[in-house]
Amino acid sequence: MQKKTVMLGVGALVVLGALLAWTFAPRPLQVEAAAVVQGRFEAGIDEDAKARLRDRYSISAPLAGRLARIALREGDAVQAGDVVARITPAMPALLDERSLREQQARVTAAQANVQ
């Protein structure tokens, strides 16, 4: 090999090493500075949330109706016989001729089952 080729190769390696060192060198970050004062910390969260239940219970009633707002909170004491919830009856649907015949057929079938 010629001396010139070796020198060019060594020079290229030195330039490549310097370029890699400059590329990966840590750079200073811009930060915001403020004076420290002692005081009360207040923070608020203004976002929508979704309630997630740990246990899900199904409660059924023998009749259709509307459940009134429950006044009890979690952890309230409840004695046997206390009213926990009130269900008001739903407005009955208007009976047309077909619905009336279906209801009459159900009554007839229930009477036949009793006998």
Rank of each mutant, 00 (worst) to 15 (best):
Val84Thr: 14
Phe41Cys: 14
Val114Cys: 13
Ala105Gly: 08
Asp96Phe: 07
Glu102Asn: 05
Glu74Asn: 11
Gln30Asp: 10
Ile87Cys: 05
Leu100Trp: 06
Gln104Gly: 07
Leu100Tyr: 05
Met7His: 12
Gly65Cys: 06
Lys50Ser: 08
Arg40Ile: 11
Ser99Leu: 12
Arg66Trp: 03
Lys50Ile: 08
Ile45Arg: 03
Arg27Gln: 13
Asp76Trp: 09
Arg66Asn: 08
Arg101Ser: 15
Asp55Ser: 09
Ala12Cys: 08
Thr88Ile: 04
Phe41Trp: 04
Val36Glu: 10
Gln104Ser: 07
Val36Asn: 07
Ala68Met: 06
Gly81Pro: 00
Leu20Trp: 02
Gly81Thr: 03
Met7Thr: 11
Ser58Gly: 10
Ala12Leu: 04
Ala109Val: 04
Asp82Gly: 08
Arg86Asn: 10
Val37Asp: 12
Ala43Tyr: 15
Ala80His: 10
Ala61His: 14
Ile45Glu: 03
Pro92Gly: 14
Ala68Asn: 13
Arg73Thr: 14
Gly39Leu: 06
Met7Lys: 10
Leu63Gly: 09
Ala18Leu: 01
Gln30Tyr: 10
Thr5Phe: 10
Glu74Cys: 11
Ala34Ile: 03
Arg101His: 08
Phe24Asp: 00
Leu20Glu: 03
Ser60Met: 05
Glu74Tyr: 04
Glu74Asp: 09
Asp46Pro: 01
Gln30Ile: 09
Pro89Asn: 09
Ala71Met: 06
Asp96Ile: 11
Tyr57Leu: 05
Asn113Val: 08
Ala34Thr: 10
Glu102Val: 12
Trp22Pro: 00
Ala110Phe: 08
Leu53Tyr: 09
Gly11Lys: 00
Val14Gln: 01
Glu97Pro: 00
Glu32Arg: 03
Ala77Asp: 15
Gln30Asn: 11
Leu53Val: 10
Ala61Asn: 14
Ala35Cys: 08
Ala21Cys: 11
Gln2Pro: 01
Ala43Asp: 15
Tyr57Gln: 14
Ile70Ser: 11
Gly9Met: 13
Leu94Ala: 07
Leu100His: 05
Val10Lys: 02
Arg98Gln: 14
Ala18Tyr: 00
Leu67His: 04
Trp22Gln: 06
Gln103Thr: 07
Gly9Ile: 09
Gln103Lys: 10
Gly17Lys: 01
Arg56Gln: 12
Pro28Arg: 01
Gln115Met: 14
Val6Lys: 07
Asn113Met: 08
Ala109Ser: 12
Trp22Glu: 02
Val78Arg: 11
Leu8Lys: 09
Ser99His: 03
Pro89Met: 08
Glu47Ser: 04
Pro26Ile: 00
Ser99Ile: 05
Ala112Ile: 11
Ala77Pro: 01
Ser99Tyr: 02
Arg86Ala: 09
Ala110Gly: 12
Arg98Met: 08
Asp96Asn: 13
Asp46Thr: 10
Leu16Met: 04
Leu13Arg: 04
Ile59Pro: 00
Ala35Asp: 13
Val10Glu: 06
Val114His: 14
Gln2Gly: 15
Arg27Phe: 02
Glu74Ile: 12
Phe24Gly: 00
Val31Lys: 13
Gly9Arg: 06
Ala77Glu: 13
Ala35Phe: 06
